[in-house]
Amino acid sequence: MSEMTFVQACNAALRQELDRDPNVFLMGEDIAHYGGMFRVTEGLLETYGENRVIDTPISESGFIGMALGAALAGKRPVAELMFIDFSLVAMDQIHNQIAKTFGMSGGTVHVPLTIITQGGGYKGAAAQHSQMLEALFLHVPGVKVVAPSNPADAKGLLASAIRDNHPVLFLEHKQLLPVKGEVPDGEHLVPLGKANVVRPGKDLSLFTYSFSVHMAMEAADLAAKEGIEVEVIDLRSLDPLDWETIEKSVKKTHRVLIAHEAHARCGVGVDLAAQIQKRLFDELDAPIEICAALDFPIPFAKVLEDEVLPTVPKILSAIKEAVGGRW
């Protein structure tokens, strides 16, 4: 184990996979000579050379499309989108091309491609640099989505994403990038589709992921002081989802809260709630609660941003709402 930041853990995963598979290569804006806007690719050009760490122009549609072509030609590209907000100018390539190739080809063509990107707010980056857009990627079938909350998971999930034979979106959170944690040395893999019970509890299942895990843990601590034992589950992977862990927890607590930073409407929470009530209706003792961003573009000023995005107090009141009549 070594202590390292989330960014260093991602860098370690990239090194691990670049070392392991000569077909892995990276492309993105400012990733090679500069070392990455957020330093995720720092030093990789020096080690692996210009054929494997490639600076691209500001052409998201173009280089994401090229990553697809390279994947179809036998490579295992990792493309970095500097902000998930910028994925929107590449959506034809992501949704119509990358996501569909396996299905359209009747399973005859695989697309081993990873998109690394970061999203999230709480930094005053305002409406076009603060979004969590994972639901957009989940809506169109064909791209897996993982959103780790800590350095160890970042290393293990990024490595698994790169080894997967299907497109994977690896979603970092800008608040998490400097966060430190213990990370296993040597080869480390976290399988896609495995959630993590980060805090056991008997009164409520709180499903969350990415930076929201940290706010959920704080809120759970506060709730514990009031006698509410919240089970916090870090989903880690949104597609594939770990139904085994979800079911086990719901069968134990019979109450559900889903907390995420993305907008509420048509989001992960709404979708998960629909699936839980369908699969586990008889297990539920109360309506499923969702704590998510207000459906409004993320404002700049801190007081306004806090109105729109979930906060610890908001998650705490959602916890109380979800356990309802019992307290």
Binding site: G62, G65, M66, A67, L72, Q97, M104, V109
Partner: peptide, 21 residues
Amino acid sequence: LGTNGIVAGGIGTAAGAALAA
């Protein structure tokens, strides 16, 4: 590597295959 329903949609794919080559 695909015919395409999107006008210009396959140009990046070919450029990427060329990059791989």
